[in-house]
């Protein structure tokens, strides 16, 4: 049982529990790496205007070779330039902002929706639960990417719309997990006692059920950011996500993909950024699952 030293005990104040979780995350090499990557990315997103070496929108003449081809990495342009002579490094830094904003926003909406549906269906059960969960089953059987593309095609893609589209596709997993947990919690004695004592539904949900669901919400919320980042990149790569000139890692590859055999850096660097960010959230989410619930080791 390698987790005993870092297993978090119940019944402590929230602050000390949170700091214990943080310490446990930093003690594991994989999640520590993930945390560092996330911190760097958040820093880059927040301070993007200060970090960017050049103007990410400026189509500079010096940014193209004599025959009009993009410049390879090195020289004045750290990671090279794109087809329009714009500085790739600067566009990547600004793209971090796009990815994180959509990651957090889309995933936030998906968590609220998924947890809301899961708790409501699990706690009230009956026909409300049946309807909600049958709808969830229906969404599970939808080819997710097709649904997202169709939704994105209906509405003009803006940051908010892209985030909403991704949330519409991604809330299902959270709903299923929270539903199952709420169902088993709702039958337990301490909830039944509250019911018998005449506590209102809102009070039971807020003060007694939600605290027990927080660790699952945290784990699946963290893993969900990774799914969100990948879906945003894929939509933007297909041209129905974040729209140029606003840079996103996916649309940088979309704009430049036809030249990947002569300018591979235009696919390689944004691709690496996407993998790194998704990997970081997967590593942290997986470690959180081990830390918060040692019975669920490494399964999915």
């Amino acid at each position: 049982m390698s987790v005993t030293d870092t297993t978090v005990q119940k019944g402590q104040s929230r602050v000390s529990r949170a700091s214990q979780v943080f310490v446990a995350l930093m003690k594991r090499p994989r999640s520590a790496f993930g945390m560092v990557v996330i911190l760097i990315m958040v820093f880059a997103a927040v301070f993007a205007p200060l970090i960017m070496p050049q103007d990410p929108f400026e189509q500079s003449f010096e940014g193209l070779s004599l025959v009009g081809a993009p410049l390879p990495p090195g020289g004045d342009f750290l990671l090279g330039t794109d087809l329009l002579g714009r500085d790739l490094a600067s566009r990547l830094v600004l793209g971090t902002r796009t990815s994180l904003i959509i990651g957090v926003l889309a995933n936030g909406i998906a968590i609220l929706l998924g947890a809301g549906v899961g708790i409501t269906a699990g706690y009230f059960g009956g026909w409300i639960g049946a309807i909600l969960m049958r709808f969830t089953d229906l969404m599970m059987a939808f080819p997710a990417l097709l649904l997202a593309i169709v939704l994105a095609a209906i509405f003009q893609p803006s940051l908010l719309i892209v985030a909403l589209v991704i949330a519409m596709v991604n809330w299902v997993q959270m709903a299923r997990v929270i539903y199952t947990e709420t169902r088993s919690l709702a039958e337990r004695d301490f909830i039944q006692v509250q019911r018998a004592l005449g506590a209102g539904h809102l009070r039971i949900l807020g003060s007694h059920l939600l605290p027990h669901l927080l660790s699952s919400i945290l784990v699946f919320g963290t893993l969900g950011i990774s799914t969100t980042v990948l879906l945003e990149a894929t939509l933007s790569f297909l041209g129905v996500g974040v729209q140029p000139p606003m840079p996103s890692w996916g649309n940088i590859i979309f704009e430049n993909q036809t030249y990947f055999n002569t300018a591979p850096w235009l696919v390689f660097f944004p691709g690496a950024a996407i993998v790194l960010l998704a990997l970081a959230f997967n590593l942290v989410g997986d470690a959180l699952r081990d830390i918060l619930d040692p019975t669920l080791k490494g399964r999915h």
């Binding site: 990774s226 993909q257 990947f260 055999n261 696919v267 691709g271 993998v275 997967n282």
Partner: peptide, 24 residues
Amino acid sequence: IFSFVSISAPQFVIGILLLYVFAV
């Protein structure tokens, strides 16, 4: 770590990189 990377990599990136290395 390899398996974590493989679940974190978007398919279009893998596809384009494989094309670049093994086809081009």
